[in-house]
Design a protein around this nucleic acid. Structure first.
Lengths: 202, 202
DNA sequence: CTTGACACATACCTACAAGTATGTATATAT
DNA sequence: ATATATACATACTTGTAGGTATGTGTCAAG
């Protein structure tokens, strides 16, 4: 399968550099020629792999952003132990591994949602598919916990999952505004406190 | 002071239409000529009142967005009663009065922060001034509550205020992604539950 | 009554960013 | 050996968004 190596390489490079540029300037602010220059390639290469800017954007979402987020949260399904602790562990992993870049530039997923969701149906659907995947993973974890009588039966897994998502994405946004990770850390900390209250005190 | 009436009118119209357009397309996606056309005016009028697109953006933030948010949250200082109930009341007012438009298009403040904060120092400072104002109002309410022994003394007003802001802005973002107000309502509901736990059970 | 400031209107300019058309080297299949 | 597909490179086109330059009507003050 050597044959496909060079193709995948160039295409992947285009995707990744554009991903970074989108993270920095947003999709509307993305200048494809600029990225092409930085990569030391030409328009020929770009338009050989992508029909245009829009399709490139879709591919960045599908092939770079979606796997990142879904892989992270789908690890909940493999977590052994109290489901609530699983969610907490995912949040702590996030807080631990967050690059300073993401404080300055925010969460790539959140950024794109805020910018593109109302403007482009294709973005909207792709981005919401990711959000739904994250919501489902958290929802399922809590529901499993309830079945196993490990989670407060009065809790509403759907609402709680929305709450977690909102606070998490909001935490990125507020930290970006303050250019400081304190808001992020504080929000995640209090979110974790809330999650602990869902553990059945039995 | 009749003299300034016609001036203020046109300028205000330009500001408000552009505010709406920014809400819809973002600042980078804003097409000033388009708005000029819709208003039935010409470039002469626009550039008479604003030196360019950037200054227009700054004025929209300062003269439309900032007052909206700061007026809302500064009402906390006038609230008589339990400070935590004051915050809850502000959240419920928000949930009650939120136009469907803001579910589709998101929170104008949050949108601009995510889009412009890392791109333009002027936006960053102006937008963060608003966020700091909101944070301060909530922080002060909780601190007053602690002084009056109405709020759990172990609570951290600064962190709690960040938590409220994160969840609230995040709730807008997630609802925008789902094109549905359920995530917003759920997040605000659980946030209110959390705030009640801060009331001293004395 | 005229002079200057204000509040616009009209016409023009131009830089850029997206996209297109076409050429070419290499490799693979037949 | 030749045809065909791949993987790019080069040069060109084109719409447009932001901005400029300049003209004009009105009004108030001196």
């Amino acid at each position: 399968m050597y044959i496909f190596a060079p193709m995948k390489d160039t295409r992947r490079q285009i995707l990744e550099k554009n991903y970074e540029a989108i993270h920095e300037h947003g999709f509307q602010g993305l200048r494809t020629d600029q990225v092409i220059k930085e990569l030391g390639i030409t328009k020929g290469a770009f338009y050989h792999y992508f029909s245009g800017k829009q399709e490139l954007g879709y591919c960045v979402v599908d092939e770079i952003i979606a796997p990142q987020y879904l892989d992270h949260w789908n690890q909940l399904y493999a977590y052994v132990g109290h489901p609530v602790e699983g969610i907490i562990e995912r949040l702590m992993a996030l807080r631990r591994d967050i690059p300073p870049e993401n404080i300055r530039l925010g969460c790539p997923l959140n950024n794109l949602i805020q910018e593109m969701a109302p403007l482009d149906e294709g973005f909207q659907q792709r981005l919401n598919r990711i959000a739904r995947g994250m919501h489902l993973a958290i929802h399922d974890a809590l529901a499993r916990g309830q079945k196993a009588r490990l989670v407060d039966p009065d809790a509403d897994p759907e609402k709680a999952a929305f709450f977690v998502l909102s606070t998490l994405e909001g935490a990125f946004g507020i930290s970006k505004s303050f250019q400081n990770r304190k808001p992020f850390d504080a929000s995640v900390e209090l979110l974790i406190n809330y999650l602990r209250t869902l553990k059945k005190s039995a």
